[in-house]
Amino acid sequence: LTHPAKPIGNKVISQLLVSEPAPLSAIPDSSPSSTELRSLLTLCDLLNRELLVLIGWAKHIPGFSALSLVDQMALLQGGWMEVLVLSVVSRSLGSADELVFADNLRLAEAQCRAAGLSDLYTALRHLTRKYQQMGLSPEELVTLKAMTLANSDAANLEGAEAVQRFRDGLHEALQEHESGHTHSHPGELHRAGRLLMTLPLLRQTAARAVDTFCRLHRERRVPMHKLFLEMLDNKI
């Protein structure tokens, strides 16, 4: 007897899975500053490098590179922090109370508080708990990350229809994936919808993160890198 070949899965999601960047390591700051300031310096350096990787990653999302350069910029300017937040959240899924920015940069609540990141800690852990409860899979994570960028509600798009098609393609991939995986989440016929309904909280969390880094910049506590500042500048 021959068994039918297992479906190879959704092409878009397979592409997203192979395009997932390797996790970065933090480069611990060695300046003679306080522990708290060193944590912030290390974090800002890591996030700046992560942002650089994120822009390279976006080009691998099926359909992204076909958009006009102006629209690519608009989507990234709108959605970069949401993508960064989702990345940190996904790394923190295995932890009960830490924010795992990198394997070697895990901050517990007390460390975040000492560094002035209490608000960010609370918001990121809230979102992390939500995805922990849902049992977010790697396939769902990569699709949500891409959708976040596609759905960044940028104004004045050059090719609004092309962006809509880009968004629809990702949505279709998510729906196709979920309709084929009802066995892994029995009774969750509405899983795709439930995942999409987490996006408002993701946006709210990213706004909190933007506020936090704008405040750090205003207080001039941490010198920020050029790329990070450029992206932040668009949010002020």
């Binding site: 490098r49 650089l52 080009k59 102006v70 890198h225 450029e230 992206m231 500048d233």
Partner: peptide
Amino acid sequence: KEKHKILHRLLQNSTTPVDL
């Protein structure tokens, strides 16, 4: 565009070295 020089450069050409 002028405001987002680094992003613009990164998207235009992935091989351009960027001063971070």
